[in-house]
């Protein structure tokens, strides 16, 4: 729903990094999309594609990596990947869990010339 705004924010970071590193050409960007990032990967890729096509580097490729949700149990410390939305710790049955991975939407790296 808000992937266009996220893509624009991501693209602003790309443009400012290009300026900082005096890049002439952007070959590729690596983006990590967590399962709980609130961004839909397809919509994000679509929006990024539009921004790239309209930019100084229309040939840049987007490499999107999906990060599944990983939780850690606050009671026993076990880390696990929940099946569906069963967020109960498989080790001790604990309910108090925190996400350790899968929340992020991250601009991981740029490949430039």
């Amino acid at each position: 729903m808000h992937e266009v705004a996220l893509a624009q924010a991501l693209w602003r970071q790309v443009v400012s990094e290009m300026a900082r590193h005096e890049g002439r050409r952007l070959l590729a960007l690596d983006v990590v999309v967590g399962a709980w990032s609130g961004a839909d990967p397809e919509s994000l890729e679509f929006a990024l594609g539009l921004l790239i096509a309209d930019s100084r580097w229309p040939d840049a490729r987007v490499r999107l990596r999906r990060e599944p949700l990983a939780l850690v149990c606050c009671a026993c410390g076990r880390e696990f990947q929940p099946e569906e939305l069963n967020l109960v710790c498989p080790g001790c049955g604990g309910l108090d869990v925190d996400p350790v991975r899968g929340r992020e939407l991250r601009l991981e790296s740029l490949e430039i010339e």
Partner: peptide, 16 residues
């Protein structure tokens, strides 16, 4: 010469 720049920046950084 192509080079890779590692960033690992959160996209909502400005909003944060």
């Amino acid at each position: 010469m192509a080079k890779r720049i590692r960033l690992a920046q959160r996209v909502v950084a400005e909003s944060d």
